[in-house]
Amino acid sequence: MVNSQEILKIKDLEKSFDGVPVLNRLTLTVKRGEVLVVIGPSGCGKSTLLRCLNGLEPVNGGQIVFEGQILTSFQTSWSRVRQRIGMVFQNYELFPHFNVLENILLGPVRVQGRKKSEALEKAEFWLNRVGLWDRRESFPRQLSGGQKQRVAIVRALAMDPEIMLFDEVTASLDPEMVREVLDVILNLAKEGLTMIIVTHEMAFARAVADRIIFIDQGVIVEDSPPETFFENPATDRARRFLNIFQFDGVQRGSRGTGPKTVPVRL
C-alpha cells in the first residue's frame, strides 16, 4: 500500500530560539502515503519541526526538500508551497468573521484561483465527510471546539494538499470532542494521505501511525513502528516518557492498614 517514493526529506535541520537550540541536526525522511506520529516531552521541538516545514519558523541550518524542491532557500515561494502542505493548529484558528463555508473557500478560490462551483463541490464533499455540511452557514463562535477543529481540517483539505501537518490538534478539546476529531484523522490515514501528526494521545498514536518518531532535545531518539515503540522501546528515554502515561492506583485499606498501590494499565 505504501508507495516507496520519498515526499519529504529533512537533513540536519537546525533551529534555535535566542541561541537555545530546539532542533539539533534533525534528519528524517517521509515516504508518500506514510503516517508519521511525532511524540516527545513538551519543549522537545516537535511543534517547531512542523512549523519549520510550513515556513512559519525560519530555520538556522540544514535542508528541507519537498517533492524535489528545496524549501530552505531564500527563493522559496512559501505561498506556493503552503498550498501543497496543509496545516491544522491546536487552537483551530478559524477566521471568526467568516462562516464555515467562507473559511473553507478562501484558499481554493482566492489563492488557488479555482472556480467557485468546483471549490464548493469539494467543500460539500469534505463537510459531509466530517458531518458538518448542515453547519456550513454557522460562524465559528457558534460551533463547539470539536466542530471547529473538524472545519479547520476541511479548510486545509480543500486545498488538495499532498501532505498534512497536525499540530496537537486535540490538545485544547474536551475529552468527548477529542474522539470526533481523531476519527476524522484516522479515516484520512486509511485513505493513504501523507500526514505528520504531533500528539499526546498515545492510544491514537498507536492506532494511526505507520511510524512513531520520538523526539527529545531536538533530536530523533527513536524511529520505529508503533508496536515496537509502545511494547518494546529501544531507549531508556522513551521508556521513561511512556511511563508517565501509566498510573498506580491507590486503594485505602479499611482498617488503617495504609495505602496499597495497584497498577492500572491503559
Binding site: L56, R82, F89, E93, L94, F95, L106, V111, R155, M159
Partner: peptide, 9 residues
Amino acid sequence: EAGLSIGLN
C-alpha cells in the same frame, strides 16, 4: 499563521 498556511500572500 492560519492565513499564511492556506497560502495567502
